[in-house]
Write a protein that binds this DNA or RNA. Structure first.
Lengths: 211, 211
DNA sequence: AAATTCAGCGTACACGTGTTAGCCTAAATT
DNA sequence: AATTTAGGCTAACACGTGTACGCTGAATTT
């Protein structure tokens, strides 16, 4: 038995989350969003907000969690697409750019609060990015036979480049995003190439040393 | 003749700039800073603020310009250090990390407003980063004999990685920044290595095609 | 010496903010 | 059927905000 009361509560909680999401725009930061604005958009009295969240920060963290979840689901989708053949790098970037286009408010929120005032926000977002990164490092290690430390560093560099490019993509008209995506793909290949070169150099060193 | 009046005006203008800079902290964004707070810190009446800046945005842009200038001056310093020998990458990263430690408020401002609400801010900061990038691309082209397009892409990737690492450095205790710096150095070398590999691959392709 | 300029000030206004206290009413529990 | 629970409401508060207006007095120009 869910309870008609609990159902209603969940519904207006959802309304609050959506209200916040809807108000976010290139002109509106989450941190510039007021409790009253959100409540108004959700169609409830300002004071009722407290029945659902202790304060705006708690709402914001919920948004971050939801955004991170969406991103991770897309990553899984990415691996499925990969099974059908194609370049990992290209597919991942395309998926990522799609995410940015379809969830620009959430992605903007992640970027903004990543360097925002609240340590809790920053940590939550760092955690999301860490997921992204470690899954990539795992892939590089198991599928590409890179030693773990090199895989870690490569994954870190790649994630940095991708997120940075994603940030720039937000300010680009959709027509020009393609170009940025292509450049990013090339950069990731550059990094991948560099990593394997370094690995080979290291292993031949080891070989010649053991001879 | 400068005029005792003009001198005074410049002085309180400076006071406003410094007041803003002083109020910035991990807990205080520039955009969360109010005109009245700045005026109070500078020791003038709120309404007097308007004798110097049209609004807070204008003050903020001034801060961005000053910060960018500082960074570029450091770059020149970097080239001087280079003349005495040493790795470009290592020296550049060390200088950059120093900048972040000594000007953390300004760097934080750059990061935050890079994805902020004001398009003017975003453009101003993009311009500063562009400087950084094109000087690096120039260097890669002329000193390292890379073709311009490859130099551009490499420089872009490097700047993305460095700024991203810089952002993370802000949240690290100074003692742990060293480790991050070393990792970043390795990542830049990875990128450099990848770029030269790609260049060689391209030129041997061209050679074999012409045979 | 007289006239003008202008940085800085105090007052005042209208407005949006977060949050408290207390009431209402339908759902849930006893 | 009686009681308790809890989401939603209105009213009210104290406070900080940006900015318009008009004044003052010293520096500057005429």
């Amino acid at each position: 038995m869910v309870g008609i009361r609990a159902k209603q509560k969940e519904k207006t909680r959802r309304a609050l989350i959506d209200a916040a999401l809807n108000q976010l725009s290139p002109q509106t930061t989450f941190s510039s969003l007021s409790l009253r604005e959100v409540a108004r958009e959700a169609g409830i009295a300002p004071t009722s907000f407290y029945r659902h969240f202790q304060n705006m920060d708690e709402l914001g963290l919920t948004l971050v969690d939801e955004g991170g979840l969406t991103l991770r689901q897309l990553l899984r989708q990415s691996r499925q697409r990969l099974a059908k053949g194609g370049s990992v790098i290209r597919i991942s970037i395309e998926i990522f750019m799609d995410f940015i286009s379809n969830n620009s408010s959430v992605f903007r929120l992640l970027l903004q609060e990543r360097s925002g005032t609240s340590k809790e926000f920053r940590l939550a977002i760092a955690r999301e990015i860490e997921h992204f990164k470690s899954e990539l490092a795992d892939y590089l290690h198991t599928e590409r036979q890179l030693p773990t430390d090199l895989a870690e560093i490569q994954a870190d560099a790649m994630v940095r480049v991708v997120f940075s490019a994603g940030a720039d993509a937000l300010d680009l008209p959709p027509s020009e995003r393609h170009l940025l995506a292509e450049q990013t793909i090339q950069q990731l290949r550059m990094i991948a190439q560099g990593a394997t070169s370094m690995q080979q150099a290291a292993s031949t060193d080891a070989t010649s040393a053991s001879n």
